[in-house]
Each structure stands twice: as structure tokens, then as C-alpha cells.
């Protein structure tokens, strides 16, 4: 029995009235407080999620203590690995979150602005806890020649490359996502959390070409994100996209497809899973 593929629910959290809350309401009637990230985390552990990701979408440093408190409490009730991301800018920020009990942190905008943050933090805390989150969007071009400095993929009759966006997907950077991924790996990142902005929120499936090329070009694990709408999408991103892990939010939160069902479907199609 080999290493299994991972299923990772993602919880967007915000801080309200001094406590961390899950942003979109979840639909679990058997939870005392479905908006409590800690309780929801423990519930997912019980459901056999392989890991959790908490993204602080407010990402305000004023609320850092609230986030740290959430991380502390999560560690008391959740016994699977969890990653915390959102607004971490310095080695000191990272240290606080890891000390509170997070297993990994994810860097996005701050890593683009200061790539040495990956290097410095990997050196201090180890590569295994530094995840680089990349938000990538397709840029279609007429021919491969017009974007010589990018990694161009032919999809059907079209050509495209992927551009990195920062600030929660609001700001294009002109940076090639694949080249950035390779650089992040070389700087010491232990994993890539790869979100397709084209697919995110569509429920139409992951960007398989994007995931596949990342998995091919990099040697570190790739967590695919953005677009999961049903179990088949997750099967596809493992089989065709060659992802190591699949992250999803709404299909789990609204209990459309409980984690157990998704994992069984994956297993049935021959994907190694921890059931």
C-alpha cells in the first residue's frame, strides 16, 4: 500500500468581535456551532480529512492574536496536520503561528514581494512547513513566439501560459506561475498550493493542464485547488492532473459530498486513499 493522495478541506476564516469565524456558513446540522473553525476542524478530522488549511482572508495584522488563539485551540482538538495562511509577511509572523501549533504556514503575496522570505523561513523552520501558495490565471497567446520568456502550453489549437496574481487574486504580476513555482521550490518551499483562478468558484473541475505541468516540472508535492464540484473532479485531478493532494471548500462545507464519500469514490477508481 503506497503513499495515499490527500483530501484537504479549506476553511476561510475571518475575525469578528474578537474571535475567528468560518466565513461562509457551513451546513452541518449536527455541529453545535458550524461557524467555529476549531469545531469544524475537529469534525473534519473525524470525517477522515487528511489535512486542513485555514486561510485568514482578512489577513490583518491587527487581528493576529485572534488567529493565534484559534491555532492554539485547533491544536487541542485536531490531530491531523493543518496549514495556516493569509497575511504572513515576516519570519516573526511565521514563528508565532508555528509556535502556536500550526504544522505548516502558507505564503502568497509576501513571497512574491520578498522571495527570500521562503529561503529564510525554510532555513529556520524546515522546508516541510513552508507552503508557497500560487494563484494562477491563464493568458492565451496567438503563438508560442509572442511570449518567449514564459512556459507555453498548447491546449487544443490554443496556446497559453499562466500568470501569478497576488493580493487575493486582485493584482496581476506578469510573473510566469510555473517559473515562480520552480523558484519557490529552489528557495526551499516544501509544497505548492496551486489555485486556478480560472476555475475557482466555478464547480466545473480543476485546471488539469495547470496542475499536470506543475507536477511534471517540480519535484515537491502539488496541492491542487480551485474548481472542485463533485468527486469525479477530484478523481480527475489525481489521475490526469497528477496532483498529490486536492483541496476543496464548498463541496465539503455544504455537505454535498461528505469527505468519506469522495474518498470511497477515489478508492474505487484506483487512487490510493486512507479510508
Amino acid at each position: 500500500m503506497p503513499l495515499t493522495k490527500r483530501i484537504i478541506p479549506c476553511l476561510d476564516v475571518t475575525t469578528r468581535e474578537g474571535v475567528a469565524r468560518v466565513v461562509k456558513g457551513t451546513k452541518f446540522i449536527n455541529l453545535r456551532d458550524a461557524g467555529d473553525p476549531v469545531e469544524l476542524g475537529a469534525f473534519y478530522d473525524e470525517q477522515r480529512a487528511d489535512e486542513l488549511v485555514f486561510l485568514d482572508i482578512t489577513a490583518s495584522s491587527d487581528d493576529r492574536n485572534i488567529l493565534i488563539d484559534m491555532v492554539e485551540k485547533t491544536g487541542e482538538q485536531v490531530f491531523i496536520p493543518f496549514t495556516v495562511g493569509g497575511g504572513l509577511r515576516t519570519v516573526e509572523d511565521i514563528k508565532e503561528i508555528l509556535r502556536a501549533g500550526a504544522d505548516k504556514i502558507s505564503l502568497n503575496t509576501a513571497a512574491i514581494q520578498n522571495p527570500n522570505l521562503i529561503k529564510d523561513s525554510a532555513k529556520i523552520f524546515g522546508s516541510q512547513c513552508i507552503v508557497t501558495a500560487i494563484d494562477a490565471k491563464r493568458v492565451y497567446v496567438k503563438s508560442p513566439e509572442v511570449a518567449k520568456n514564459n512556459i507555453i502550453i498548447q491546449i487544443g489549437e490554443k496556446y497559453c501560459w499562466w500568470e501569478v496574481y497576488i493580493h487575493g487574486g486582485r493584482t496581476p504580476t506578469g510573473i510566469d506561475a510555473i517559473l515562480w513555482g520552480i523558484e519557490a521550490q529552489n528557495l526551499g518551499s516544501g509544497e505548492i498550493l496551486l489555485t486556478s483562478m480560472d476555475k475557482d468558484g466555478t464547480h466545473l473541475g480543476y485546471d488539469l493542464e495547470l496542475t499536470h505541468i506543475f507536477s511534471e516540472k517540480l519535484t515537491i508535492p502539488i496541492i491542487a485547488s480551485g474548481g472542485a464540484g463533485d468527486p469525479q473532479h477530484i478523481i480527475d485531478v489525481f489521475k490526469l492532473g497528477k496532483a498529490d493532494a486536492a483541496l476543496a471548500a464548498s463541496i465539503f462545507h455544504y455537505n454535498e459530498y461528505p469527505i468519506g464519500i469522495v474518498k470511497e469514490e477515489c478508492k474505487k477508481s484506483g487512487i490510493p486513499m486512507r479510508l
Binding site: 500500500m1 503506497p2 503513499l3 495515499t4 493522495k5 490527500r6 487528511d50 522546508s127 516541510q128 516544501g190 509544497e191 519535484t219 515537491i220 508535492p221 498529490d244 493532494a245 486512507r274
Partner: peptide
């Protein structure tokens, strides 16, 4: 060794 495994490090659940 990368010739014998898919990815390094091994990250995840194994039996």
C-alpha cells in the same frame, strides 16, 4: 533517491 520514489520529501499518509 528521486529515481526510486515519486517526490521528495514524502509528505502524507502511508501505511
Amino acid at each position: 533517491e528521486i529515481s526510486k520514489v515519486e517526490k521528495i520529501p514524502q509528505i502524507g499518509w502511508n501505511s
